[in-house]
């Protein structure tokens, strides 16, 4: 952790094809003592609640998803991820995998339009819609807008970043690519659950003595389309500065690896575009947010 080690590898490996969602157990959804108080809802219902509360329609979310796919597709075609993709090889060093498999660059409003909302039945039958309207009573009913095409992909993935002090880097003969300017975590409203990026961005900007306009580039994890749409809305941001090479809707969200992945993507893009400052942020289940501000060196 910060300052306690000279040089650390941060990252993760996630095999969602082997370990399903919810497999980790935990008291939060199950134990009445925790679940009732914290307004537990499956994340998709919370994402639909965010869309309803802040006025994002199914079309808004689908349009955002199409853009993510198109941006990711273009980025791959131009080789923008070249520096960060490590091929997977078999025991004979034969390449098994060297590109993202989840992307659908040809996705369109029509193709997404045919998908059924994923969380409508769960919300209705499982009682979670009522939890949503209890927590946010100005809402008459939850508008279920998210589906497989405008939510993050369920994928396998691994990523790592090397973080260290200037001295440790120099001693190892390494050249730094970016400097961490500030980082922060925050607890956020648990029913909305996934609006932590908004709260933590305010906090980290304050800590860094910066304003939203000082940031050149944003990576906001695309857990669900409404998470990013709410982020854009809250700060009045132009989406030309946000997730410019697509995000988890196109590339997937291998939970434990995503943080390192999008931090790397931000560094690659700063170097490619010659810009200076990026803010990387993710929402976290149960209502948290994390954000890091980096500068290119």
């Amino acid at each position: 952790m910060s300052g306690q080690h000279d040089l650390v590898v941060g990252g993760g490996v996630e095999s969602m094809s082997r370990v399903g969602l919810g497999a980790s157990g935990g008291a939060w959804p199950m134990d009445p003592a925790i679940a009732i108080k914290s307004y537990f809802m499956p994340q998709g219902v919370s994402a639909d609640l965010i869309a309803t509360k802040y006025g994002f329609t199914r079309d808004d979310c689908d349009a955002y998803a199409v853009q993510s796919q198109q941006r990711a597709g273009a980025a791959w075609t131009e080789g923008r991820f070249g520096k960060s993709v490590v091929p997977v090889r078999d025991v004979n060093d034969i390449i098994l995998l060297d590109r993202d498999e989840h992307m659908r660059p040809d996705a369109s409003m029509q193709s997404l339009g045919s998908l059924k909302a994923s969380f409508a039945e769960m919300g209705e039958m499982g009682g979670f819609d009522a939890v949503a309207t209890y927590a946010h009573p100005e809402i008459e009913r939850v508008n279920h807008v998210h589906h497989a095409g405008n939510s993050s992909g369920i994928v396998d993935g691994a990523a790592a970043v090397l973080v260290g002090s200037k001295e440790a880097g120099e001693a190892s003969g390494l050249k730094p690519r970016a400097r961490i300017k500030a980082f922060a975590n925050i607890g956020s409203e648990p029913a909305l659950m996934l609006t932590g990026p908004v709260d933590v961005t305010r906090k980290v900007l304050k800590r860094a003595g910066m304003e939203i306009g000082d940031i050149d580039l944003f990576e906001v994890n695309e857990a669900f389309a409404a998470v990013v749409l709410r982020y854009l809305q809250a700060f009045g941001l132009d989406d030309a500065r946000v997730n410019v090479n697509g995000g988890a809707i196109a590339l997937g969200h291998p939970l434990g690896a995503t943080g390192a992945m999008i931090l790397g993507a931000a560094i690659d893009e700063l170097e490619r575009s010659g810009k200076e400052t990026a803010l990387v942020t993710l929402c976290i289940g149960a209502g948290m947010g994390t954000a890091t501000i980096i500068e290119r060196v």
Binding site: P29, M30, M125
Partner: peptide, 21 residues
């Protein structure tokens, strides 16, 4: 068992339905 797939299909909705009802 409580901590099983059927348990996971039972208790989270039961907590939500408690609030709804």
């Amino acid at each position: 068992p409580v901590w099983s797939k059927p348990g996971f299909m039972t208790f989270p909705p039961a907590n939500a339905i408690y609030r709804r009802e």
